[in-house]
Design a binder for these strands. Structure first.
Lengths: 341, 341
DNA sequence: CCGCGCGATGTAATCGATTACAATCCGAGA
DNA sequence: TCTCGGATTGTAATCGATTACATCGCGCGG
């Protein structure tokens, strides 16, 4: 049993060639004659050689890793996206380093400790927030070219962004409810500072206006995408004197707990009130009644983001600045919407 | 604006010291005199210096990264654990590299490509399966010392393992149901080859026997922890001529869809049938009725696993071989259990 | 006053792979 | 026959930090 890992020199010795030849066999096999290549591969197998990544990284000034910033890793919506990002990057020889950006100061830290010291080649962030400090640090090291937003984004930084068509999704919701006959529609929004919350809220207001609906300010409730927020919103909305007949929740999690709270308060869904979510998490199909919602193509979002980043890492980025790709959305009609009472 | 990142040599020049001194300021500040240390830190700030990880890794033969193998990244149960693993490791200067072990051949690949070439220092696996090839590869490179199981485990490899007290959790479930008066209890198990499924199923049978319950083989249904499996199990169990009055599902996801399917088939929970889950995912508290279940300390599991690994990376492992730590579980009584009809 | 020991710092070897440049060989064309 | 070009392979510099060892200076006991 060997004490130490074999190095390229050992392989070269066994194969009877130089270290340069071994290295070339690894990185550009075409440049070697067939017999030499074979000798080297045999030697690699017989010695059990493995390239030392640290050495390779040092020399090539690459890291072979990508940072993925996730706001709240525990949220299943994000982890599905992470999963598909991981698949694509792994298939292309990149490792995925994850960081939870909700950790206090984690985002700064992650960027500082991983990006600037060269331990990652690029970054995909699912978090639309990017502090000035982080942004400037990235810019000053020319790393801005290797950052891609996914799902969320920030208008402050001109960066490529893969996102669902939130405007369309919202319009589909409003149109669906209006078609059913609803004219009093509430909206449980995401947190105020969130770009998705903002876009969906604005699209909701616009679409309602187009249909000539009169939306009371009381019907717009701010949430935070979480389960708890849906329940709280239900209490507020059901307590209103002029109660809406339908609710558009900006996330499935909120829609879910909204419905639960309605049931607990003796309000039937969809008979008394219709509810629509956003995301189409797996559970939406497995509740009773099934949740009517907007499907986001989570694996597509992750895949596209990973591919966009890969293209940039290869130096193929066509467009400079912001390059926005919209992933498709679709209305999935299930059982939580019906005609108003 | 600088073209290139400053290196240690540049800092040394600015500070008027040698590179060795700068390096020492970074890694063992105590060994420097106060004024020198100050000079170096000033120079580091003024140059904007960042250590090059690849170079450091090469020299120190460390990677500063840990691999986490997750079966199905999209599963929120795992992502919560991943999140706490991440917190602990990040706080200790390690990056977290994730891999989805469900990718075909990914597990082998991940270990081969990351572990053996030195790009990670250790591994936490949430997947109880470890192929012979992987295990032997780890052993042959002395990497076995730096592997920790979390949640799931394998008896084949004598490795430290952090797990919930599955036996106790299962006993709590059975005792609870028996105390309510149930004597005909079904079990929706996990997949056959899964260690958690096996342990819970066995504990279930044993505890039922202790209570003198006669469990029909028809009442033991194999699932796979997923939402779909719960619905299918419900169909099978409700169709039985001799129907059980309570069901213990090996995961909350299965319990949830089991209940949904019951409702769809006109069977009331808990009036007609009681249901208990396992995990206590966040949603369990937000459904109606609330899901009675066994709480697993997900963040504790992740934290303990990370700490165990850190101890081993520091070379502090006390015990050789298998070191099992049990995380506490607790019965959370909500609304899906009641006395039998 | 000498020399020992210790703390602080510098010099240079080292980690292991990549790659610019040089050397060699071989066949084709003049 | 000689030269030129291309394909193949070797030599050695290089990436940037760490650290063994050497050096220096200083205080203190003998």
């Amino acid at each position: 049993m060997k004490k130490t890992q074999p190095k390229i020199k050992d392989v070269a010795f066994v194969a009877g060639v130089s270290t340069a030849t071994v290295s070339r066999a690894l990185t550009q096999p075409d440049r070697l004659s067939a017999p030499t290549r074979q000798k080297v591969f045999d030697a690699i197998h017989s010695t059990g050689y493995r390239v030392n990544q640290a050495a390779r990284n040092l020399r090539t000034r690459r890291a072979g890793a990508v940072l993925v910033l996730v706001p709240n890793l525990g949220n299943p919506f994000f982890s599905a996206i992470l999963s598909s990002i991981n698949d694509v990057l792994a298939a292309n020889g990149y490792s995925v380093l994850v960081f939870d950006s909700q950790q206090p100061g984690a985002s700064e830290h992650a960027v500082a400790d991983c990006f600037l010291n060269g331990s990652v080649d690029g970054m995909i962030t699912l978090d639309g927030h990017m502090s000035d400090a982080t942004g400037h640090a990235l810019r000053s090291t020319n790393m801005m070219q290797q950052v891609v937003f996914c799902c969320e984004w920030s208008d402050q930084w001109q960066l490529p962004s893969i996102r669902s068509n939130n405007g369309l999704g919202t319009r589909l919701v409003v149109d669906h409810l209006v078609a059913l006959g609803h004219r009093r529609i509430a909206h449980v929004a995401g947190p105020a500072e969130n770009i998705l919350a903002e876009v969906r809220k604005k699209a909701f207001a616009q679409r309602c206006a187009i249909h000539g609906l009169d939306i009371s300010p009381d019907w717009i409730v701010e949430g935070d995408f979480s389960l708890g927020a849906g329940a709280r919103a239900a209490e507020r909305i059901l307590a209103l004197s002029e109660r809406p007949t339908a609710v558009f929740c900006a996330s499935d999690a909120m829609a879910l707990s909204f419905i639960t709270r309605c049931q607990q308060l003796g309000v039937a869904v969809p008979q008394d009130i219709s509810v629509v979510g956003f995301d189409d998490i797996e559970l939406a199909a497995f509740m009773e009644p099934g949740l009517t919602t907007i499907r986001q193509d989570r694996s597509g979002l992750g895949r596209l983001a990973a591919q966009e980043l890969l293209a940039r890492l290869r130096g193929e980025q066509k467009t400079e600045g912001a390059h926005v790709i919209f992933a498709p959305v679709a209305l999935i009609e299930r059982g939580t919407t019906a005609a108003p009472p």
